[in-house]
Structure formats: C-alpha cells, structure tokens
Design a protein around this nucleic acid. Structure first.
Length: 618
DNA sequence: CGGTGCGCACGAT
DNA sequence: ATCGTGCGCACCG
C-alpha cells in the first residue's frame, strides 16, 4: 500500500490546500509535496493513486475539475445520493454542474447503494485493504463531487453524493478517524488535520456528540459498532430527521403545577406528599453527582408501604397513583417529564422545557434512538437540576434503529442502577418505564429479549410494588380479571371499565384490544405488550410516556420499525394521545398496513382508555 | 514566480 | 441559515 510517509504528506498537503482555499488538484499536491518534502512528483502521484485506491484519499470531480479529498475529512453528512451511473458517463444527477465525470469504468463504480450498504467494501477493482487500518473508507464520498476511485486508473466511481448513509458514513468515519490520527500523528498536527478529524466525527452521526476526537480507540469501537449496526438499513426508516430533538413533550404531564394550594387531600395524599418530600431529600442527600432524580411512583409506593407501617392499607399502585394524580393536579406534587414525582416548589421542579431544546443542536444530530433515550434522561436531569448539558460525553451509543429493545437495554442498564436506588440520577420514570417494561416482559411474557436490561435493584423494587398487585389477589385483581373477562374488541366501550381502577383499567383495556383483534402477530406480542402496558400503566399513564416509552410500546407491540417512526417523529405519550388517524397513517411515513393496525389497535385504544381515565378521575 | 491568506459567490442541505 | 468549495485577487518573500 502506500507508504505511510507519503500518505501523511499527501493528506497533509490536501488539507493544507484546502485550508488555503485552493483546489487540491494533482498539480498542486505534487508541487507542494515536492516543495515540502522533496518528493518526486511522479512518486507522489503514484502514492496518491494508491491512497485513492485505499480510499484514504478521494478523487472527486468537482465543478468540472478533479480534486482530491482527505477521506477523513470529507464531510459525512449524508447528502442526497444521486444515482448517477458512472458508466453512463452521465454524470451527475443533481450536481452536475460540478461533477464532471470522467469516469468510465462501470465496473468500478459504486452505487450508492453499495456504498451505503456495506461500508467496508473496497470493491472497486482497487485492492481492498485488508489491513485494519482505516485506510479505505469506502463510504467516503464526497458530496457532490464524485468520487473517483481510481482503480483502474481512470475510472472514477461516482459514488458521489451518494449518501453514504449512515452505515457507510460511520464506517468511514471510524476509519477516517484513524486515518486522520495517523496522518496527523506524524506531525501533521495541521490544523486541518485536526479539524478534519474533528469534523469527521462531528458529522458522523455516531461520533458526534462525542467530543473525544482524541480517543481513537474507543470511538473507533463505538463507531464501528455503530456502523455495523446501523449500516444495514440505511435509509428508509427514517426519512429525514433522525435528529433527536427532544421536545418538550411529555414534560407537561403533570409537571406544570406550581405552588400548591395545600389542599386537604385525603391523608393518603398528605402521606404521599410527605413521602415524596422525604424521598426527595433522601435522594438529594445521596445524590452523588449530578442528578438526583425525584422519586418515582415505585419508590413512593415502597416508601409508603414501608414507612407507614400500615401494612397494606390499600396502597395499591392504583390507589397511590390516583392519589398521586390528584395531588399533582392540585399542585401539591408535580410530575416530571419522566414521571418522577417531585415537590412543586423546588427549584429543580420547574419544568424547563427550554432546556431540552437547545440540545438538539448540531452534534446531537447523530444521537439517535438510544442516544435519544439517554438524552432524555439526561435532559431531564439537566433540565431539572442543571442547565442544558452539552457536556455529556457519554453514550454514544450507536443506535440501532431497528431494535429499540436493544436501545432500551443499553440505555438503561447503565442508568437504571442509579435510579432505582435513591440516587436516581436522572429520570426514573423513563427508566422505570423502560426497565419495567423489559422486566415486565420478562416476568410476564418473557418474550422480548430485553432480559438483559433488568436491573436487580430496580427489578426488585419494581417487583415489590408490582408483583404484589398482580400476583396476589387484591383489589387490583378484580380489575385484571375484569379486563380479561371482558375481552372487548378495541371498539368496545370501555366505559364499564372506567369505573374501575384507573390505571389498571387502562392496562386491561389496552391489553384486551390488542389481543382481541386477533392478529397473530399482535397476539404474539400480547404478553409483551401486556407486560409493557401494565408496567407503563402501573408507573404512568400514556400521557406521561416519553418518546422512548412510546417507541418501546410499539416495539413491544410488534411494530419495531414503526416504533422507530414514532421516535423519529418524537411522539411522546401526549402526542400519541393527540394523534388522529391521518397522523398515524400518513404522518409517520410508515406503511399503511402497520399504520392501520397501530392506529386501530393501539393508538385508538390508548386514547380511548386514557380519556376514560380522565373521566374517571373527574 | 511560487506560496499563502482570504473575501466572496455558489451550490447543497 | 449554514457549510464546504474553490475562484480570484492581494500580499509576501
């Protein structure tokens, strides 16, 4: 392959030229290399060719002339891919103006698809680089320019704009990074070089956010992982905006309350408030680092049952929840976006919707699914306790669009531990929801593979609260039974249920419908959903669901892909409850079939149930 | 003359 | 609006 020395020189040169705003063409490159290093132009040219083959350097046709790019620094945003076929010589699709194509060998040409799909491929007659080095970043493409892999000498492949979609991008990114680092290492601490790397990362969906342009290893790993994961389904799922802008959404749930007119709630209410207070304090005290999340329903429940010596005193989840809602409504308590319960007045309490918005910034863009979840959690913490957190270097989880489950697991496993205990560093609700869901599923249906995510502590806690309710005959059983008995089709009026325990009612109702329609798939998921719903319900009603919760719900319901769409569209519980048929059918850009099922069997049902609950409350 | 820096226009997102 | 490019021009040694 190319001599490292040359590679460095060349990359350096390219970067240098670019920084000078001069076209990095062959002539300039050779000249500069010669000038700086005394290298023979021919040799330089030869090396350049090698680099091109390795895709360390990209040969592109830009605005009719050939330019070279440092693959590492090529911007990786996916630009639209044009599908020009190199062979045809018909160059450019959209960017024609620029791209002049010179190429011809069809053989070598990469199609966008190819590119996107597999990042590694080195295919163009060029010799693939076996070496682990990042050298070749197939995905590297250059925006509108067409990349011209030189394999056979002159063929340019126009992969041009293609977008390297995520997959390829990532791949390239990782590689690029390496490249950069290597190149840069040799002393080319050129500003460009560094910039390049940085840029590359930043642009890379995965890498972004991570500021660590330094740590190659980790990033690389991560990136790699990511690439592998996401590369497959490059585009389709999410049309355009994978950005995780967190919205304010769910926050509203109960969050708005401010001061409480300290009312006269039943003593349970007072106890609740007291419990929240003490839990909050406790958390606060123990909170080591930043976030101490307010207690979640679970904890409160535990606390109540524990603290109040009262054995059981109807402290069922539902009961507590109802009271909780009431208190929230009165303003004595407030619910955070993630479902935590906090005291209203507290500084931290104020919901700061704004906090999260800022985050959607550029870098975040890459944060997707998982990230998103995480972010939310983070956000919550930050939102409540801190300002916008730009810092978090963490996660970088690569998201796998397709498997929310995984996301959940990944996300939560790390955080959950905290939450469950008192330190809750961030949103317990979210975690709770997710974890619980997974857990629940495990417990109940065992369907999803989420098992991994189960957190011992939390699980335990959750179990305490939930298990009793569900397993033991208690007030709730009735409800449950009822629901089962009632197998009403989705269309059936749940009114009957409304009278019953709210939350439970919800779950039961939901379950029923989803199951009843009879879709095999649905049925299959039934347990999982049931679990999820129960959990969700147990912890919070749909309104309180976060985007992640919604996604998890649909994933559990057997619509992983569509769940992604919900996530992409940032549909949280509230949004979900506000969705109309058309929104589901057309607003999510999902296929009609699933969309219909989702709407009829889930959205509609959730909405119906939810509103019933409301009525019940009143 | 070659190298460099950079304002500015362009096109893509 | 922002970003990547690179033309074209001024400046420097």
């Amino acid at each position: 392959m190319s001599e490292p020395k040359y590679r460095e020189w060349i990359l350096e040169t390219i970067d240098s030229l670019r920084s000078r705003k001069a076209r990095p063409d062959l002539e300039r490159i050779c000249r500069m290399v010669r000038r700086r290093h005394g290298s023979d132009p021919d040799k330089t040219r030869a090396e350049l060719e090698k680099l091109i083959q390795e895709q360390t350097v990209l040969k592109v046709s830009y605005k009719g002339s050939i330019s070279y790019r440092n693959a590492a620094k090529v911007q990786r945003k996916c630009r639209k891919r044009t599908e020009q076929t190199p062979d045809s010589g018909e160059p450019l699709g959209e960017h024609d103006k620029h791209a002049g194509f010179i190429n011809n060998d069809s053989a070598l040409s990469l199609t966008d698809q190819e590119e996107c799909e597999d990042k590694e491929p080195e295919e163009p007659g060029a010799s693939p680089c076996p070496d682990p080095l990042p050298q070749t970043s197939p995905s590297a493409f250059v925006k509108e320019e067409q990349i011209l892999p030189q394999s056979s000498g002159n063929s340019f492949v126009s992969c041009g704009a293609s977008g390297h979609s995520a997959g390829s991008v990532k791949a390239s990114a990782s590689r690029d990074k390496r490249l950069v680092s290597e190149a840069g290492a040799s002393g080319s601490s050129h500003r460009d070089a560094s910039g390049a790397s940085g840029r590359a990362e930043g642009d890379t969906p995965l890498a972004a956010g991570h500021e660590g342009r330094d740590q190659d290893e980790e990033e690389e790993k991560e990136e790699k992982t990511c690439s592998s994961v996401s590369s497959p389904p490059p585009r389709n799922k999410i049309p355009a905006s994978p950005k995780p802008k967190l919205k304010v959404g769910a926050k509203g749930a109960g969050a708005r309350c401010s001061e409480s007119p300290d009312g006269n709630s039943a003593d349970l209410g007072d106890r609740l408030v007291a419990a929240v207070r003490s839990l909050t304090e406790r958390h606060r005290g123990s909170a080591a680092t930043r976030g101490h999340a307010p207690p979640g329903l679970k904890e409160i429940l535990d606390f109540l049952s524990t603290q109040r010596g009262m054995p059981e005193e109807k402290l069922t989840r539902n009961r507590v929840k109802v009271v909780l809602e009431r208190e929230i409504e009165r303003g004595r308590l407030r619910r955070t976006r993630l479902g935590h319960i906090t005291l209203p007045a507290r500084g931290m309490g104020a919901a700061k919707p704004s906090a999260r918005l800022p985050r959607s910034a550029p870098q975040d863009r890459h944060l997707e699914k998982k990230e998103e979840v995480k972010e939310e959690e983070r956000m919550e913490v930050e939102g409540e306790e801190h300002g916008p957190a730009e810092d978090s270097p963490q996660t970088q989880a690569c998201t796998d669009p397709v498997s929310p489950d995984t996301e959940v697991q990944v996300d939560h496993s790390p955080s959950s531990p905290l939450t469950s205990e008192g330190k809750s560093q961030s949103s317990s609700s979210l975690e709770t929801a997710n974890q619980s869901s997974s857990r629940q599923e495990v417990d109940v249906g065992g369907r999803e593979e989420q098992t991994t995510s189960v957190e011992p502590e939390d699980a335990g806690a959750e179990k305490n609260t939930e298990a009793p309710d569900q397993l033991h005959p208690s007030s709730e059983d009735q409800v449950i039974v009822m629901s089962e008995t009632e197998k009403a089709p989705s269309s059936l009026p749940m009114r009957d249920c409304s009278g019953c325990k709210l939350e439970v009612g919800v779950s039961s109702c939901l379950l029923t419908p989803s199951a009843s329609p009879g879709a095999a798939e649905e049925r299959g998921m039934n347990e999982g959903i049931a679990g999820f719903v129960k959990l969700e319900t147990g912890g919070m009603s749909p309104v309180d669901w976060t985007v992640a919760d919604v996604a998890s719900y649909f994933t559990a319901a057997g619509f992983p892909e569509q769940a992604l769409a919900f996530r992409t569209q940032e549909i949280d519980g509230k949004s979900l409850l506000l969705m109309q048929r058309n929104d589901v059918l057309t607003g999510l850009s999902i296929r009609l079939g699933p969309a219909l099922k989702i709407y009829e069997r889930h959205v509609k049902v959730l909405q119906r149930t939810h509103f019933q609950d409301d009525e019940a409350f009143c």
